[in-house]
């Protein structure tokens, strides 16, 4: 980082000291002379070229093509058909199924933050001390995150089904008398989203814990010691020192969690059998796939995909702008 800053300063012909006080007067002039030489465009092209080609072909181009297709009434076969302007978009935003799936995604975004955040923070704080078998605990907590999404979805479906493992066990314990009275973890419209939140928490809380534990390593022992000497209790230390210093890590985790929740597809599709019961666990990504592949409304589905893309992008940019601003300032301020 330091080298970069000096390089920038050098390039604009300003003294490093004047631009960035932190660099100080000790910046060696020999270094400045070296970086003032011409920019190595050849090397830049050589190293970034392949990545740029792949990125453009498989990311930029499909996004642009999708934007193009979304203005057509395309059924997935033959030519693109009729140009209909923004009709697909206005229909998508009026589609009650899409709106309810948007609400489901919003529920998942909010609940993931509210449930997983405090839970992971608590566990991370508890585990951030000398413990017997600490490595084993960490591994166990992280295992669900490593399990493939489809496997996790299929496994929990077997457990939570109407006649699944859990209800069968409860039946044998005498909690209910007959299978028909069993709890519809996945078939009760009021319960299914909470069941999904449970499975999502099981699956993703490990990532949050590992991230927070890594963040906790960066909290300097000196500060904690100083606080302890000043007579701060464990709670006070956590609340006033550890958690504030963990801020950047928490915000990064929130960012990942929000984007992941908006995009939720594979595990939810298997767990809830494509949004059952009666679409009450339907997500926006399921809507896109279903309209395109099952109903052959490719133009319409692509418009929904663009809406999903814009929602993700807006959420990401807003979060970056307002929540993570301080975290990004390090580089942004100088450049």
């Amino acid at each position: 980082m330091t080298v970069n800053r000096e390089a920038l300063g050098g390039e604009t012909g300003l003294a490093g000291g004047a631009q960035a006080p932190s660099a100080g007067p000790e910046a060696p002039s020999a270094k400045k002379n070296r970086v003032r030489k011409s920019t190595p465009w050849g090397e830049i092209a050589l190293f970034t070229g392949p990545a740029l080609v792949v990125f453009s072909t498989f990311v930029i181009l499909p996004v642009v093509l999708a934007g193009y297709v979304s203005f057509y009434h395309w059924d997935g076969g033959g030519d693109l058909g009729k140009f209909i302007g923004f009709e697909n978009y206005s229909n998508v935003l009026k589609d009650s199924v899409f709106i309810s799936s948007m609400k489901n995604n919003a529920f998942i975004v909010v609940m993931s933050l509210l449930i997983q955040g405090p839970l992971a923070l608590g566990v991370a704080l508890l585990m951030n001390r000398k413990l017997r078998f600490r490595a084993a605990f960490r591994t166990m907590i992280f295992v669900p995150y490593v399990v493939a999404e489809v496997i996790a979805g299929a496994m929990w479906r077997l457990i939570l089904d109407q006649r699944g493992v859990l209800n069968t066990a409860l039946l044998q314990l005498g909690v209910f008398d007959k299978p028909a009275d069993a709890i519809g973890w996945l078939s009760d419209q009021k319960l299914v989203m909470w069941t999904m939140m449970f499975v999502l928490t099981w699956k993703y809380v490990g990532l949050a814990i590992i991230l927070f534990l890594a963040g906790l390593q960066g909290v300097p022992d000196e500060v904690l010691e100083a606080a302890a000497i000043d007579g701060a209790s464990w709670w006070q230390v956590q609340r006033r020192i550890t958690i504030p210093l963990l801020g950047p890590t928490i915000r990064v985790w929130m960012f990942l969690s929000i984007i992941g929740s908006i995009q939720l597809f594979d595990m939810a599709r298997l767990l809830t059998n494509n949004g059952a019961p009666f679409d009450s666990a339907y997500t926006m990504a399921m809507f896109v796939i279903d309209r395109a592949v099952r109903m052959r409304q490719y133009g319409y589905a692509t418009a929904a995909a663009i809406v999903l893309f814009v929602i993700s992008l807006t959420a990401a940019l807003l979060f970056m702008r307002f929540v993570m601003r301080r975290d990004n300032e390090g580089e942004g301020g100088v450049a």
Partner: peptide
């Protein structure tokens, strides 16, 4: 990044890019 990638996969199918196919 993850969102872009996944989106890209879908779009590649949906837009049925003649180039790729």
């Amino acid at each position: 990044m993850a969102n872009m990638r996944r989106y890209g996969v879908f779009a590649a199918v949906a837009a049925s890019s003649a180039l790729l196919l």
